[in-house]
Design a protein around this nucleic acid. Structure first.
Lengths: 231, 231
DNA sequence: AACTGCGACAACTTTTTTATTGATGTAATC
DNA sequence: GATTACATCAATAAAAAAGTTGTCGCAGTT
């Protein structure tokens, strides 16, 4: 029973992804030699917090949810992983374990590159390295924002943040809210599921948002932003 | 947010597991230096078929289900992983990707050891190596049995095999059937869920087994064994 | 050509999960 | 000491998943 791989000829065009555009033929070859491609099915873990990380994942298709786990069963959602993004970059250069878990929200076509290959390419190809640095930088900045939210904002601001964040993905992924449970939304805001449910209702009553089954539409972007700002 | 680790002092006694008994102090130190401990929650993947395997997992507590995936969504269950067993051994010496997936049936306390450490210990400590070889040998033998079942037996024999196998774990894990859905059982036998349901009913009617919600008790071990033998 | 062994599909029931709401408790802040 | 900002618990309600059954069809066997 062979693993779920696509053919090499598929791969050539896979690497057409923007971030691999600057690679030379040799470098593409290097990536190809140390890559494997895996289909993660909805619900599969892409990474598990604490396990050894000897590779980087690059999501080509599908959406995933990245989160951290505490000692209890409590989880905190960090972001939605979209096609074209790396997972586990951070873990590869510094710590050698993944510092977060992630789970497929839809089937995800992913390819895995061993960290040595990535490191080698960065050494050779500054432009590629720059792209990686940009990602780190942005991720860093997002982490600071998240930290601020968690430290200083309360329920209303947090859920507003969450809604604005998820809504920002809706243009490209209209089904995004369907993929998330109320608990997932609550775990983005870091509040209890029940509080999230109540707040959503209350936001709806105030005409800020509209609830349709699992889907959520933002009606008053301005006010929601203001709530987020005020915390 | 630190990963879910137990303290080193816990670890000392962790390594009391039978298979680590022959290790010298130095070797325990080696394992300890390159290990990390992770709590996989019910439903988390311990391994995903096709991902890079740079480490071995050793299950200390909890049960997991090991399976292979095809190109379609079809899965085939290979075994239940019990405390004291390794996961991913096979992947470490030969291929460097996991050749199967596995998922936690209950919360699982697992520790991960990088493959280099395992290889080093085997080089130094023949007795430990022997234990590993025994495991491979047994796993191999089980794989041959499975292959024979899949190749030569039909529904009745297959489901009988499955029932006898799962039942053999029931002494130590009385709740085992509660942890498996009908689909899981069917996937052990390699038949459709519907066929599995029908066969179970029919076995019950014939007095071979007793169904109690999800639990299954074997009433006539002899006849079931005979059905398994005949295929 | 009839029969066997099984998967696939559809319709339906049961169980499990998720969502929702109100009530209560509590630590932190005013 | 009162108020605010939540979590937690319990009780339902609603939605989703799992389980069940009958029917059909097809690929191999006899």
């Amino acid at each position: 029973m062979k693993p779920i791989l696509e053919t090499d000829s598929d791969f050539i065009c896979d690497v057409q992804a923007p971030c691999f555009q600057t690679l030379t033929n040799d470098e593409v070859e290097l990536v190809r030699a140390s890559k494997t491609q895996v289909l993660f099915r909805k619900g599969d873990n892409l990474t598990k917090q604490g396990t050894f990380a000897s590779y980087v994942l690059f999501v080509m298709k599908g959406l995933a949810r990245q989160y951290i786990e505490g000692d209890n069963a409590k989880i905190f959602n960090l972001r939605i992983i979209k096609p074209g993004e790396f997972v586990g970059l951070s873990s590869v250069f510094a710590r050698n374990t993944f510092n977060y878990s992630s789970v497929a929200l839809t089937d995800c076509q992913v390819f895995l590159v061993e960290k040595e290959a990535i490191a080698q390419i960065i050494r050779q190809n500054g432009t590629f390295g720059l792209g990686i640095i940009r990602r780190y930088c942005e991720q860093n900045s997002n982490l600071f924002d998240t930290l601020r939210t968690v430290m200083y904002k309360q329920m209303n601001g947090r859920i507003a943040d969450t809604l604005l964040y998820i809504d920002s993905l809706k243009a490209e992924n209209p089904e995004i809210f369907q993929l998330l449970s109320r608990k997932d939304v609550a775990d983005f805001a870091g509040i209890s599921t029940e509080s999230a449910v109540k707040l959503l209702k209350s936001f709806e009553k105030d005409g800020l948002i509209e609830l349709n089954e699992k889907d959520i539409s933002i009606l008053n972007h301005g006010n929601l932003t203001e709530i987020s700002r005020r915390g």
